[in-house]
Structure formats: C-alpha cells, structure tokens
Simulated scan of single mutants.
Amino acid sequence: MQLNIYQAFLLISVSTSTLLTTPGCAANPEHVKQLLNTNKCFNCDLSGANLQGANLSQASLLGVNLQGANLQGAHLSRAFLYQANLQGANLSKAKLNGADLSEATLYQANLQGAFLYQASLLGANLQGANLSQATLDQAFLSETNLQGANLSQATLYQANLSKANLSKANLQEAFLSKADFQGANLQGANLQKAFFFQANLQRANLQGANLQECIFQYTMMSDGKFHP
C-alpha cells in the first residue's frame, strides 16, 4: 500500500530523534512504518513517537507501547488499544470515539478535551490522568481506576462508572446526567457544582466527598433513597 504525502511526512518525522517527545523513549522506526502501511501493529514499540494529528481510525494496536507518545488531535476512533501502554501520553483533543481501551494503562496521560463517546475503558488505569473537558458520553468505565484523575467540566452522559475508583478525583462542574455510579468509590472526590440528573449512586462511597453546590435531580442516592 502506497503512503500518501501526509503519511510519508509523518513517517519521516517519527523516525527522527528530534521529534521524540519523551527523553529516553525511542519509537522503533520499523514499527512506525508498519503502522502507517497497514494500520495495525501488535505489541509494537511506539514509545515517544510524534503522531500528532495522525489518522489511525480503526487501527489494531493490541498491547502497543505508546508511553510518552504525542497523539494530540489524533484520529483513533474505533481503534483497538486493548492493554496498550499510554502512560504519560498526550491525547489532548484526540478522537477516541468507540475505541477499545480496556485494561489499557493511561497513568497520568493527558486527555484534556478528548472525545471518548462510547469508548470502552473497562479496567483501565487512568490514575492521575487529565480528562478535564473530555466527552465521555455513554463510555464504559466500569472497574476503571480514576483515582486522583481530573474530570472537571467533563461530560459523562449515560456513562457506566459502576465499581470505578474515583477516590480524590476532581469532578467539579462535571455533567453526570443518567450516569451509573453503582458501587463506585468517590471517597474524598471533589463534586462541587457537579450535575446529577437521573443518575444512580446506589452503594457508592461518598465519604469525605465535596458536595458543595452539587445538584441532584431525580437521582438514586447511595443509601437507596430517591432524590426528587
């Protein structure tokens, strides 16, 4: 398959050490070439690669190492990133709608303003990640580790966060309409000015959470009582 002009330029860019985003991380040039030629790369080393704005929609990236990579504004809709390592990666404003990030490592990743509509993050590690202003409508975040994550002003309409760990997470001004928090850990979380409408908080741990100016409408509370 021939490379178009953009892909050829991108291949040259990521193959040079001057555009590596993380010191000590060096993407394997052959793995980069494979990805751009085939849109798939299993267990490849793309650590530190500059893939800013790259079109990787529906890419197959099982177990790929993208630690410290620059994926700002990249198109990864419906990409398969199961068990991928995206620790410290820059995914700000990336398009990840429908992507499978189950069991992926996104520790301290930057996902500010990213689009994750209907994305699957089952069991993923997003501890300390920046998801401020991200779109997570109908995303699957069950059993996900979001400890200390920044979800301020994020939208999570109909998102599934059952049994997720959101302890000490920042959800200030988050839109949580019809979100499922059953059994979630929100201990010490900042929920100031968060908006809950027809949400489910049954068996959720809200101990020490900041509920100042938090809005609950038609929501099932942690004690099983309905908040009108």
Rank of each mutant, 00 (worst) to 15 (best):
L111D: 00
S132H: 07
K178T: 10
N110S: 02
L62A: 04
Y117L: 15
Q133C: 10
F115P: 00
L51E: 06
N145D: 15
Q34M: 12
N55P: 06
L161R: 04
Q202E: 13
G183Q: 06
G208S: 04
G24L: 08
A194D: 02
N4M: 07
R203Y: 10
Q182T: 14
N130M: 02
Q58H: 09
L96I: 11
T144N: 08
N90K: 05
L20Q: 11
L35A: 02
E103Y: 13
D137G: 09
K225Y: 10
L35V: 07
S102Y: 03
N165A: 12
P228M: 05
G73I: 06
I5W: 00
L201A: 05
G48E: 08
T144F: 06
L156V: 10
T219S: 13
S132P: 11
Y82P: 03
F140W: 07
Q108L: 06
N205S: 09
N97C: 12
C44K: 00
L131S: 01
T18I: 15
Q2M: 11
C41L: 09
N70E: 10
L106C: 15
Q187N: 09
A114Y: 07
G123C: 12
N39M: 09
N97V: 09
L56T: 07
K93P: 00
L211C: 09
Y6F: 14
F115T: 14
N145L: 07
A8D: 11
L136T: 05
N55V: 12
T38Q: 09
F181A: 04
Q34E: 14
Q7M: 09
L121G: 02
A26E: 12
N210T: 06
L46N: 00
D100W: 05
Q182P: 04
Q217I: 14
